[in-house]
Design a protein around this nucleic acid. Structure first.
Lengths: 191, 191
DNA sequence: TCAATTTCTTGCCAAAAGACAAGTCGCAGA
DNA sequence: TCTGCGACTTGTCTTTTGGCAAGAAATTGA
């Protein structure tokens, strides 16, 4: 059994038995880079755990450019909360950036876990709380930090993104164009 | 007794008795516009409910300009979650935009309510969940909508902000300068 | 009521960012 | 190995946005 469940749910004291129940409810899938887990306009029905690889979420801006809104790295949950939990068509598309190994579970089965595994709903509560802090921090960073600093921060905190995602996706995630990011890199290399 | 508690906590079925307990734990305060509820660098110790008036949160950007990050309207909770719940110095400052009537409670007493009022923690869970959806939506709007549309959306959803906050604060909240917003308004008036 | 201050508008100029395109580089597949 | 494609860099030009400042309008306080 993969130890991804241990990693993802480590913040709460689940018993080995609980982890086993959780793991058994998931199905392992391996998909190639460029695959879609969820497309704009669809309502999400699955919850994913990312064991290996890189996934991104993106939307189209008012000029129809793809803007990457999020990167998901190993041992993270890959979902569009507004679509999965509110049952709305997603504004965002989920696409693999590299070949990936994921574990999926239907939303229905996921909800069952809330009842069958004590402490799982507590874990959900914790996840939402953490999301509030990180979403807020991200929005503060966009206004308080320069593009260069946001790039350096991303490089420091999640280097696997910089290493594996194309420049264009990284740039749009940082709120700039690939041309600008290329120039930022050039300036940084001079120092 | 003010019915603000009824308004704020209406999403869960609190009994009249529960509401009374909650209300009694708060203290009413009236403050003039321009007052500070929390300053950058301080750790928040109070939780506020806004009965009347308008409050904003702001940070300083990399050029030391004030950027309004949030507006709080009547019957909303006025807090900086990262500071209040994580006990960190706040990056954001809370300032009244107009004269205000607020009800405050210390963080300590607030935590007591979680234990003494059944369902209060459920309300907290709901609040965090809602925040995730709205914070995410806000970040999507910034990339998918033009500044003009963001202005129109704000005008439609929270006209009291447009009516009561100075242009400069509205502009920075929308991610543009007051000069640009003035020009957007001019263009809109031509239609 | 009147003066003083703040807020908002607008013109001009500068700076920053983006669009576009050409050219280089490197990798993947035939 | 060679070819072709996608990714990245870089130069030029354009567009957008912002800075600044002057003036008008509105608000505040004495």
């Amino acid at each position: 059994m993969s130890d991804i469940f241990q990693s993802v749910y480590q913040h709460l004291q689940f018993s080995a038995e609980d982890i086993k129940v959780i793991a058994k409810a998931h199905q392992k899938i391996e998909i190639t880079k460029g695959s879609f887990l969820l497309k704009e306009g669809e309502t999400a029905n699955e919850y994913y755990l990312l064991e290996k690889g890189l996934v991104r979420a993106f939307v189209h801006d008012y000029n129809n450019n793809e803007i990457t809104t999020e990167f998901f790295v190993e041992n993270e949950i890959v979902i569009v909360p507004a679509s999965l939990f509110q049952r709305n068509p997603s504004q965002e598309t989920l696409q693999t950036v590299t070949d990936c190994v994921l574990w999926k579970i239907s939303f229905e089965d996921f909800q069952h876990l809330f009842h069958s595994v004590p402490g799982f709903s507590e874990w959900g509560r914790l996840w939402f709380t953490t999301q509030v802090f990180s979403l807020k921090q991200k929005s503060l960073d966009i206004v308080t930090e320069t593009a260069t600093n946001r790039y350096l921060k991303l490089l420091k905190e999640k280097p696997q993104i910089i290493q594996n995602a194309p420049l264009k996706q990284i740039a749009s995630f940082l709120g700039i164009t690939d041309t600008s990011l290329s120039r930022i890199r050039k300036d940084l290399s001079k120092i």
